[in-house]
């Protein structure tokens, strides 16, 4: 340990190998030991506004759930006529359908190879099945207690938010499961509504807001980021407004949640990034960079 740096009396240079006999004790290291130490080489530098922009996906999804619950509440109270909601939903779906193709000039449709006939078929399947099953849905949970239904719906919507594909590459993400949970929650809630037409409109609305709206959002975000920010703000404010008409406390809490997610969380992330101490060096596990599939075949 206390030997001369680099060399000993015979002028032999110390090497960090075990396969050669060297005139040093076994636990000897010299100054060059930590030469290869690297810090934070893979750490990313975040821009504040970019993070805020990315967090808008979460905000959008939260707002979707909020809007859905608010609409359901209006329907349950009888303040919103199902025909009106259906008409609005149909109109906005048509607008969104046109927008979906217009935004990228039909590139996405060409790439996926999906025809308009298939879209029409899907729409028909949605409408027919929902309309056919709506009397069944209406009487489905008659005997089950309302609290059970609410608890189930809450769990399912939470699950929908947890498993939603926000663009992160994680094992927990499953857009299928997320969508299924949302539909399950909507069916549960729709079965509490007074008439079967209400149930039909509610489930249709659930498909629009949980299945179709995120697809349009994704495309908006990719093609026209500016309008996406505008849409997000509009959507968030309308959700807040809806919630405010039901309960002021809920609206305040929701607003706080939105603000903390879109402003505080990015700020905190960037602050915490400074304390990052990721060390790398020759002691790391081997990392296979090359694609080995050609050897394996």
């Amino acid at each position: 340990m206390c030997a001369q740096p680099g060399t000993d009396t015979q002028g032999v240079r110390w090497q960090k190998v075990l396969y050669e006999r060297q005139p040093f004790p076994d636990n000897y290291v010299d100054r060059r030991f930590l030469e290869d130490l690297r810090k934070n080489i893979y750490a990313r530098k975040y821009q504040y506004w970019a993070v805020v922009f990315e967090s808008s996906v979460v905000v959008q999804q939260l707002c979707s759930v909020c809007v859905f619950v608010v609409i359901w509440w209006y329907m349950d109270e009888g303040l919103l006529a199902p025909q009106w909601l259906f008409g609005t939903g149909l109109a906005s779906s048509l607008i969104g359908y046109v927008l979906f193709d217009v935004i990228d000039g039909g590139e996405g449709r060409k790439k996926s190879g999906r025809t308009r006939w298939a879209d029409l078929k899907s729409a028909l399947v949605f409408i027919t099945f929902t309309y056919g099953f709506s009397p069944v849905l209406k009487t489905l949970t008659e005997s089950v207690s309302t609290d059970t239904i609410y608890a189930m719906a809450v769990f399912m919507l939470l699950g929908h938010l947890i498993f939603f594909d926000y663009g992160a590459n994680a094992a927990i993400v499953s857009s299928t499961l997320s969508l299924n949970m949302a539909i399950f929650a909507s069916v549960c809630l729709a079965s509490r509504l007074p008439r079967s037409l209400h149930a039909f409109v509610m489930v249709t609305f659930a498909i629009q807001i949980f299945a179709l709206w995120p697809m349009l959002q994704k495309k908006l975000k990719a093609c026209t980021p500016c309008s996406y920010v505008g849409v997000t703000l509009l959507f968030a404010f309308s959700a807040l407004g809806g919630l405010l008409s039901i309960s002021a406390v809920g609206a305040v809490l929701f607003a706080l949640l939105l603000v903390s997610i879109s402003c505080l969380c990015p700020f905190y992330l960037i602050r915490l990034q400074l304390f990052k101490e990721n060390i790398h060096g020759p002691w790391d596990e081997a990392e296979i960079k090359e694609d080995l599939s050609r050897f394996l075949s």
Binding site: V125, F126, F129, F133, L137, L140, T141, L179
Partner: peptide, 21 residues
């Protein structure tokens, strides 16, 4: 398996109905 949107929808609808029945 990756399902289509309509498959998912009908499947979940039927699942809910069967579960409650």
């Amino acid at each position: 398996c990756s399902y289509d949107l309509d498959q998912l929808f009908i499947g979940t609808l039927l699942f809910t109905i069967l579960l409650f029945l």
